[in-house]
Amino acid sequence: MAIMALITCGPLAACKDPVETRREPVDDAKERGLAAIKRAGCGSCHEIPGLDWPAGRLGPSLKGFDDVGLIAGALPNRPDVLAAFIRNAPSAKPGSTMPRMPVTEGEAEDIAAYLYGLDHD
């Protein structure tokens, strides 16, 4: 019986991160994050779930960003690193097409919260 349970649950469990590493941002930070995304015009270059328009394709799509590996394919995936990257990408990753964005530190943290809180699937 125990073996059966292991066989059926094992593959399912492997699909998700261990619970404690998932970041579950608080809801109002996510809301503020989406508002900041709209205000800053992030959609000019990125497709962002929850933002109907614009859905630019010059930069990478941010769909499923909650499960992304390295930030911009190069940086450690931590909220503080993501927030710093959003504010000043060229300094975080030299050569990045993404320029500095006119958002405050607080807004960058909220945007990071929003991106980590995207569709868990």
């Binding site: 000019s44 614009p54 630019g56 993404m98 006119p102």
Partner: peptide
């Protein structure tokens, strides 16, 4: 604004507009 009143105007949106205005509008 940029793109006729539709986007905030700064370097980021300028790059997005020049590089791919057809996705935006």
């Amino acid at each position: 604004t940029l793109g006729a009143g539709i986007l905030p105007n700064h370097r980021g949106t300028l790059i997005g507009w020049i590089g791919d205005s057809q996705s935006i509008k």
